[in-house]
Structures are given as structure tokens and as C-alpha cells.
Design a protein around this nucleic acid. Structure first.
Lengths: 203, 203
DNA sequence: TCTAAGTACGAACGTTCGTGCTGAGAATAG
DNA sequence: CTATTCTCAGCACGAACGTTCGTACTTAGA
């Protein structure tokens, strides 16, 4: 049973690179031999860290999740609940995608599209991460609603759907058409959909 | 019939199946051996139709484009320009995704996400198809605007971005979370963003 | 009927994939 | 110091990949 007691720092270096590659070529396009060559270690040595390709893929998703939480989620939690947090959340996401924290744009956009029709543990992990994120956005929206900063009859899931749609499409368009305007389009759409300040129609 | 290229009907059967597989597993996950086994022909025989994997991928994109045009674009052209056509376009797209014309949802959503960061002819073809579609939607929106059915200061590219965002995200959410509500969310978002009938705020 | 063209086949090429096994060398315990 | 443990590189394996090749078989035209 290999995989466990190895150097933790080396492991995280491997996984950070794995996430970069996966954002570009997908988690299937990520091959152990190529990753090993890339990092200047042997294929079997790297393999020993994980024990199987599927474990490597799952570990890569966990590592990417940590980056995502640090880049997008955490800094939004430092803002009090309400519209401010909603906007901060969206801006963090757009910045995370635009700055190419992963060279292939949002890691999860790539992986979700790759595994959305392939059963297995990797898909399950991707689905769970996506669900967490969707709920987090909906919660932030609902907080703002309950604080009276959005109309009482606002459907948090519906609004979260629309905000996520703008963000992910900005990511997609920017990558595919190398069009930096995509992010400004998303920002415009978000501003149009969600008021910047508390409106006068609170409950 | 000497001199004729290989049987055109067989070729299109191959490509239709290739598009189905690619919508599920991507154009890289589409392997010649598997496709041949799937269709009950020899690998080399199938290979002879295309000459290289890249040519097979390009031909598959062309075949999928034909399906897309027939399912989404053509029937929208049968309704006169204006808001009606815009709504028809969106509804055709959502129906095409929801009915799983390709078993993995929208073929182009899968392929675009797969190749958005990989240079090459396949990417170029995907980009071109995406650009055509985006312009087609923006044109339909602009037609409606010029007919006075949308506010004169409507930005067609911006609105097209938002509509496409709703549609593609419905496709993604439906696949990943097996959530049929996703399409209704998109329809709700579209109705909210684009009036069903000509409003009173025309130019 | 004979010939030429052309399709589709099986076999095999070299490469890369994921995955085991083995053995050298470093680290650590007594 | 030796003895044990752990890590990683090297090598080999079988399978699958895209691709090439030689060759039966089919068919059109002379």
C-alpha cells in the first residue's frame, strides 16, 4: 500500500502542477509520465505517491479546491453578509479566472465539462465541489435578501444560477476567443442584475 | 463507380456516431479503434476514410455543425426577424440540449471546453463555429432592436452574451447535477431579460 | 473475360499509457 | 557500528493508441 508517508511538501508541489496541467488538457490528458518528466522525477516514483491514476485525479481536485477556497471563497467571507459580499464573491471569481491562477482558466470549469457525462469517483468529486459552490453563492444571495437588500420575492437559487452563468461564460469566452472584453461583459451583466447598493424596496 | 470517394452514406454514419461519442468523452477520448469496434468495422478500414485522427476530428465537427444548423438555426429562420425569432432561437437551443440530440448534451459545449486552451486546427474549427453562433444570436437581437422591439440603446453583443450564458449553463448544470430544473431556470432568466412581446419603449 | 481502380481487411509497426517489481542508496534505530 | 526501514529510479509488462502495409475482394470499363 504505497502512497502515504511520503514528503508532504513534494506532494503538494506535484499536485499544484497537476492542477495546472489539468486546467489546460483535462484530468484525462494529465498523464503520469508527462507529469513526472515535467517535474524531473521518475514515473514510478511519482506514481508511488498516489497508487493509481484515479487517486491522482482525486487528489488533484482536492488540491485545486484548496486553491479555489483561498482565492475566491475566503476573501469573500471577510466581507459582512449582504450585497457587498455577493459582489465581492463575483469579483473574486472573475479575478481568479482572469488572472489565470490556473493557466487554463477555471480548473473546475474544465473538469466539470470533461466529466459531466462520465460516471465514476472523479465525476462524483467534481459534482460535490460544484454543488458546494452553487450553494455558497445561493446562501450569499439569500443573506442579502433577508437583510432587505434584495426584493423579498427574490429566488436565491435562480439568481445564483444567473450569476454563475455570467461568470463561467466569461471564462469560456475569454479562453476560446482570447477576448478580454468577456470579463467586462460579465461585470456589466452582474451589475445590471444585482444592485450595487441597498435599494429602497426592502421588506 | 470507380474514382468515387468512399461511400458517402457510410461516412456520415461514422461521423454521426463519432459526434455522439465526442459529446460524451471529448474529441480526444474518441479513439479510432473504439469507434471502429462500435460500428463493427475494422480500424484500418475506418481510418482510410479520414487519413488521420485530426481529420476525423475536423470531419466530426463539420458533421455536428450540420446537425446543429438543422436543429437550432434553420427552424429559427422560418420565423420573421424580431423578438419572436430571438425567443425561438433560445427555445430551439434549450430543446436541442434537453432532448439530448447528442447524448452528452451540446456537442460544442463539450468540445469548446476541451480545446479552449489547446492550439491547433481542431481548436480553430471550434472557435470558428462558436463565433458564427455568437454572431448569429447577436444579429437576431440587433434585428429585434432595429425593429423597435427592444430599447434602442440595447447592446446586441452584450445581450447575446447573457442569453448564451443562460443556455450553456443550463446544459452544464443539467448534465452535472442531473437537474431538469436547469432548463426552466434558463427559460425564466431569458423571459426576465427579453420581453416576450414588443414593449412600449420602442425608439 | 481480362484489366484497372478502389475498398476494406488483418497484421504489425513504434509509442505511450497505467501499473507492478526490484534493487540501490539515504535515513533512522539500537 | 550494524541493522532495519523507507524512498525513489530503473526496468518490464500488457494494453491501447494512431498509423502503415500488403492483400484479398468487388466492381467498371474495355
Amino acid at each position: 500500500m504505497p502512497g502515504r508517508p511520503r514528503d508532504e511538501r513534494t506532494r503538494s508541489v506535484i499536485l499544484r502542477r497537476a492542477a495546472d496541467i489539468a486546467s489546460l488538457d483535462g484530468l484525462e490528458g494529465l498523464s503520469i509520465g508527462r507529469l513526472a518528466t515535467d517535474l524531473g522525477v521518475s514515473k514510478s516514483g511519482l506514481f508511488g505517491y498516489f497508487g493509481s491514476k484515479e487517486e491522482l485525479q482525486l487528489a488533484t481536485i482536492r488540491a485545486a479546491t484548496a486553491v479555489y477556497v483561498e482565492e475566491v471563497v475566503q476573501p469573500a467571507l471577510s466581507v459582512p453578509p449582504g450585497l457587498g459580499r455577493v459582489h465581492r464573491l463575483c469579483e473574486n471569481w472573475l479575478s481568479y479566472s482572469q488572472r489565470r491562477v490556473f493557466p487554463g482558466g477555471c480548473f473546475f470549469f474544465a473538469v466539470n465539462a470533461e466529466f459531466d457525462a462520465r460516471p465514476g469517483r472523479v465525476r462524483d468529486a467534481a459534482v460535490a465541489a460544484s454543488l458546494d459552490w452553487t450553494r455558497f453563492v445561493a446562501r450569499a444571495v439569500d443573506d442579502a435578501r433577508q437583510l432587505g437588500e434584495l426584493a423579498v420575492d427574490t429566488d436565491p437559487d435562480q439568481l445564483a444560477f444567473e450569476l454563475i452563468a455570467f461568470m463561467e461564460t466569461a471564462n469560456a469566452v475569454s479562453l476560446l476567443h482570447d477576448d478580454p472584453n468577456a470579463y467586462e461583459r460579465a461585470r456589466t451583466a452582474i451589475r445590471r442584475r444585482v444592485p450595487l447598493q441597498k435599494s429602497s424596496q426592502g421588506a
